[in-house]
Design a protein around this nucleic acid. Structure first.
Length: 436
RNA sequence: UCCGGGCUGGGGUAGUGGUAUCCUUCAGCCUUGUGGGGGCUGAGACGCGGGUUCAAUUCCCGCGCCCGGACCCA
């Protein structure tokens, strides 16, 4: 008996059935927005991540040297891969490029609630549009997905921020401030106490007074973005604020403005974000971590050697992340049960007829099982019950002597006989009530 | 890497320095013709390693794994 690896998870049929529904819903929304599915390798050159994120990243990778001496790694995220794909065919692809994919990723990190070493995400990205409508479409996709998954509007919110607003406000205090460090401090502001937060800002190069003034501006901006422009006169800040306002205006028309809340203390930890960033949260606080996040990363494609190409995306976790957790807490996670349309039960030597019926029902698209274990009547009934068969078709020697089969509706226990030649006939999904 | 709490059949539990209770589950049968009732039979556990001991599931140490948190979060 072998144990599974720490941080990895098995999904049995019932569990997978529920997760399949979540994935199908998410992908279905993406398809309706015109995102096209792509598939990508599980292994990439480790250098692609080191170049983008630094040597420390290797600590978090499942990397190894392959038999050809290449340093490779299981992919920890999709973004570098899609960036590579965009760069490789940049001239051939019509813009905007709208892609999605659902896949596992691997990170060697500590296991916590909603965080495993193998996890699944549906990545949804738009490349080649810097328009606010692109940011808004990503937000709209995300909001529509959560709604379609059954999550009430009041139970989730997108905390929307803007990297350039943060950066310009910081530079308005001190042009030499370490913006990345300060943004990481902002990212932590909700988790640490105020003194520590201000201390981190001070480490980034702000005086304590400036740090306090900066944080006051963030609070003011959450209430009214225009207030920032009154306080700080910088053209680049004005542009950033107007960009965020334009994105929010677009979400209004896209029908998802109510899900968005300006939250300048939301920053995202990553360095490559450039404009709008957002994180989805549980408004009821049942899940304390971010459900997922996304944002704009306009410089990444160029840094991968492509033409300057703006990009914006989001990556909700499916299968084993915080999103399923939230759906469970909210009571809208799909039933973790398998379902079966028909069980064709055989009694005695009736395989020929039973097989014909099973075949025809399957051809019509139904989920159909029949006995493959030479089991007794009672045992077959028990099995049919255990797989949640909706209808049992009893093909027995006694009924066949009268050229009949018995149709039994499992939930009620009601049953009736039907001429064997008429079943299933032209019906795609014949039920007990069709013959009662 | 660190901190807290855990670990007894597949699941849930009882209990003990002398290898284990009950429920459930699973398989078969009672019952070639009725599951979500009943009866019988069977399967199935002390996370791993070391130490103390005549004897360890029980006590001690280490490790592993699980749950939660810190760090990190591409």
């Amino acid at each position: 008996m072998y144990d599974r690896l720490k941080g990895f998870k098995d999904f049995y049929p019932g569990e997978m059935a529920a997760r399949r529904e979540v994935i199908d819903t998410t992908e279905s929304v993406a398809r309706r927005y015109g995102f096209r599915e792509i598939a990508t390798p599980a292994l990439e050159d480790v250098g692609m991540y080191v170049d983008k994120s630094g040597e420390e990243i290797v600590e978090e990778l499942y990397n190894f040297t392959d038999k050809g001496g290449r340093d490779v790694t299981l992919t920890p995220e999709l973004t570098p891969t899609v960036a590579r794909m965009v760069v490789a065919k940049q001239q051939a692809l019509s813009k905007p490029i709208k892609w999605f994919s659902t896949r596992p990723f691997w990170r060697y990190e500590q296991v916590q609630q909603g965080r495993f070493r193998e996890f699944y995400q549906t990545n949804v990205d738009i490349f080649g549009s810097e328009a606010p409508e692109a940011d808004a479409e990503i937000l709209a996709f995300a909001a529509d997905t959560l709604s379609e998954l059954g999550l009430p509007a009041s139970e989730f919110e997108f905390r929307v921020s803007h990297r350039d607003i943060l950066g310009e406000l910081l530079r308005s205090f001190d042009e030499d401030v370490d913006v990345q460090a300060a943004i990481r401090a902002v990212d932590k502001s909700e988790k640490v106490d105020r003194a520590e937060y201000l201390g981190l800002l001070a480490d980034a190069g702000l005086s304590i007074e400036d740090a306090e003034a900066f944080d006051d501006l963030l609070a003011a901006g959450n209430e009214d973005l225009d207030a920032l422009l009154a306080e700080v006169d910088r053209p680049t800040l004005t542009a950033a604020v107007e960009n965020l306002q334009a994105v929010l205006a677009a979400t209004e028309d896209f029908g998802v403005r109510d899900h968005c809340e300006v939250s300048l203390r939301t920053a995202r930890g990553l360095d490559y974000y450039t404009g709008v960033v957002f994180e989805c949260f549980d408004t009821q606080d049942r899940v304390s971590r971010a459900i997922f996040g996304g944002g704009r990363y306009d410089d990444l494609i160029e840094s991968f050697g492509g033409q300057p190409t703006p990009a914006v995306g989001v990556a909700p976790g499916v299968m084993n992340s915080t999103l399923p957790l939230l759906l469970q807490e909210a009571g809208v996670f799909p039933e973790e049960e398998i379902s079966t349309d028909y069980y064709v039960l055989t009694v005695g030597d009736t395989r020929a007829v039973a097989s014909r019926i099973a075949r025809e029902l399957r051809a019509a698209g139904n989920v159909v099982e029949t006995d493959v274990s030479a089991r007794s009547f009672g045992a077959q009934m028990g099995y049919a019950d255990s797989i949640n068969a909706e209808t049992v078709v009893i093909v027995g020697e006694q009924d066949l002597a009268n050229d009949e089969v018995t149709i039994k509706e499992m939930q009620s226990g009601d049953q009736t006989t039907v001429p064997v030649d008429e079943f299933p006939g032209d019906r795609e999904q014949p039920r007990y009530e069709d013959f009662a």
